[in-house]
Amino acid sequence: MNALQPSLALIRDIEASEIEFMMDRMEAIRDRPGNPEGVEIERFGNAVCFYSKTMPWPAFNTVKGLAEADADRIDSIVAFYRDRGRAVQFEAVPALASSNLLRKLTEAGFYPSGIHTSMYVQPERREAVPAYLNSVQASGRGPEQETISIEALREDQLELYAAIHCRGTGLPDAGIPSVAANNQVLHGRPGWQFYLTYVDGVAAGAGVLFTQNNKASFTFAAVLPAYRNRGLHRRLLDARIDEAHRRGCGIAVGQCAYLSQSHRDMDRAGMKLGYVRTTWTRLDG
């Protein structure tokens, strides 16, 4: 049962969990010999600015933790990214971003370009059965049984994980070596746990958990297209909620697109809507 109730303290915990896992992830990538991805992390007041020279995607070049007290720091933050030839996106969290702050973003040439959902649950014991039978409809043959299992990722499976990561999210296979390298530094790092889910012994999906300061974050999950609609994502959620409970976490947080399949799976897993935050992007790109 989800006993956590909406409050300003809860919203701050949810945002903190997102900042903590991103901070630990980017620090681990930055600390690779020679910092090959050119990662930098800079603070402006409450705002935490993440940047990567070689990874241009918004997730690696974003500003988290922005608050009313940072309204007059927006120009300095924009200059930080401009000096590095990178566009920046800001994240604004309801109840933490005032109308004055949003007005300042608008005056700086930014507009709300997207929304993203943060879900939460109070971790509890789940029936984390290592393997189970799932009924599926076989084409032209009626229902069949398939065995589904979830196992911890071994270090020698990082290439496999990276392949699922890329193919499950629509990234090209050319990105597999980079994804593998950037997650190798997380595998075995305190707080991080990787999972693979199998269908009849074939790796079909992956999920990642990060725990710190009594908070858990579901940092990633993907299922290969051929294995979707089998409940694999839900099973990955249950396994991570169970592990978060085992680690003594008081809250577990996950992000998803609003009304996406992931959103529906999180709702079925007992997760509640924490907030829908907005992403702010500059009009001139």
Rank of each mutant, 00 (worst) to 15 (best):
L105A: 01
L10D: 08
R32W: 05
G85K: 12
F210E: 02
R268T: 12
Y198K: 07
N100C: 05
A174R: 15
I164G: 04
G45D: 05
L259S: 09
R82S: 15
E20M: 10
S99G: 01
G201P: 14
R264A: 12
R234G: 06
A87R: 04
P190F: 08
L232E: 04
I115W: 11
V185C: 15
L160P: 04
A244T: 03
D156F: 05
A108D: 01
L224A: 03
R264L: 11
H165E: 02
V199T: 01
K53F: 02
L133D: 10
V202I: 07
E124T: 14
N35C: 10
Q137N: 13
H116W: 13
R86V: 03
S98D: 06
T147V: 13
Y227C: 03
A204Y: 01
M266Q: 15
I11F: 06
L283M: 08
Y132T: 09
V179H: 05
N61M: 05
P33M: 07
P225R: 10
S98V: 07
T197V: 07
I77A: 03
G248Q: 14
I150Q: 00
F80V: 08
Q255P: 00
G201R: 12
R277T: 02
A97G: 04
A244M: 04
F44L: 12
G168T: 06
A206L: 03
R228F: 08
V93T: 15
Y195G: 00
D238I: 05
A206I: 01
N229D: 13
G175F: 08
D238Q: 14
I176T: 12
G285C: 03
R73L: 14
A152F: 01
F218D: 00
D265R: 09
A244C: 05
F50E: 08
L259M: 15
A222H: 09
